[in-house]
Design a protein around this nucleic acid. Structure first.
Length: 347
DNA sequence: AAAGCGGGGTC
DNA sequence: GACCCAGCTTT
């Protein structure tokens, strides 16, 4: 950073704020400073594009409009509203944090950055975002947009996959930070989303193009630098769709590994059930870090005694497709077995 | 410091 | 197929 030591870059922040006044996206959480709603939206949209999470956010706020409602809800229902969104620790943590606010802060959302940071599932980015947007806090909310925009403006090749990148770009952000940090943080998100996109950015329309070193060097595509990438490994899973008379068996996942605490079919069956396997189908499903191939067996139990014995020996939930809609299944099951009748067609 | 965790859009 | 997204927690 020595090349920029004695320079003043505050005009960049001012320009960005002026652009934001005219070009801010019209989003449901832009019309409030309720820290609860801002907090929820920050969690929902972690690693998630606006269009992808908008319905989840709206449904979540409608069902859980305030901290108390969320804190008093059952965890299963919170997960039900989170299903399909991914990163399910967020739902579990958001629920615990609501109870933290009830117990430790008498139900009043903490206003201080350091206090907000103590909430489950809240890291430095989210604490900065909530405190700046709702309470005039002064911390930059450094996210992927900050990495990209700042690395381009300063043609800075600091590795954004380095674990020190957050601190590094936080310092870089302070060089351009205006007085209104809350609007600045949101402006950076909008600029990063609408103009300074990862690929093929609209530099001609960018309010900062005169200040952007990478643009003037015609090296936009070289920033940000990121050296480490995640490689997906293959994993095979087996599920048994065990059913009789319109009912089938499910169980809840653990809170380790993928799909934390969501519901699913049994992974295994007893020897007695093997003869009732009528068919099987393999479904491929890609996660960021895993390539799953899921083998789903159709187990149509024609014997009342075998059905009863199997249930007695295991801790499965008996449900039907109507009831299954009240459970948070991982997406593959909902995608490929949406109701009892299509299940027969597929399997 | 590095690994693990989802689902979907974009090119 | 590779990359990226309003990141955080665990190891």
């Amino acid at each position: 950073m020595e090349k920029i030591e004695n320079s003043d870059f505050k005009h960049i922040g001012t320009k960005l704020l002026n652009w934001y006044k005219q070009n801010a996206r019209d989003l449901p959480f832009r019309q409030t400073k309720d820290p609860y709603k801002i907090w929820i939206c920050e969690i929902v949209f972690q690693q998630t594009r606006i269009n992808q999470g908008l319905n989840h956010y709206n449904n979540f706020i409608k069902r859980f409009p305030d901290v108390k409602t969320l804190a008093n809800a059952e965890e299963d229902e919170v997960l039900l509203y989170w299903k399909g969104l991914g990163y399910y620790s967020r739902a579990i943590n958001i629920h615990k944090a609501a109870q933290q606010i009830m117990n430790d802060y008498q139900g009043t959302f903490p206003s201080d950055y350091d206090e907000i940071l103590k909430l489950k599932g809240v890291g430095k980015y989210t604490a900065a975002a909530v405190s700046s947007i709702c309470f005039n806090g002064k911390m930059p909310a450094v996210d992927g947009n900050f990495y990209r925009v700042l690395s381009r403006i300063f043609a800075d090749d600091f590795d954004s996959s380095n674990s020190r990148a957050f601190n590094y770009f936080s310092e870089l952000a302070t060089l351009v930070l205006p007085e209104n940090v809350g609007d600045f943080n949101q402006a950076m998100m909008d600029l990063g989303s609408e103009i300074c996109k990862p690929r093929n950015p609209f530099c001609g329309e960018c309010p900062l193009n005169e200040d952007c070193l990478a643009f003037s060097l015609n090296k936009i595509s070289e920033f940000p630098v990121k050296t480490k990438t995640v490689k997906a490994e293959h994993l095979g899973l087996k599920y048994y769709f065990v059913h009789r008379n319109g009912q089938f068996l499910i169980q809840q996942r653990k809170d380790d590994f993928i799909w934390k605490k969501l519901f699913e079919f049994p992974h295994e069956i007893s020897e007695e059930l093997m003869p009732f396997i009528k068919s099987a189908k393999t479904v491929n499903h890609k996660l960021t870090h895993k390539n799953l191939s899921i083998e789903i067996f159709n187990v149509e139990v024609d014997s009342e005694i075998v059905w009863t014995d199997f249930i007695a020996e295991n801790q499965y939930l008996i449900t039907d497709f109507e009831g299954s809609h009240e459970k948070s299944f991982p997406k593959p099951l909902e995608t490929y077995i949406q109701n009892y009748h299509t299940a027969y067609k597929i399997l």
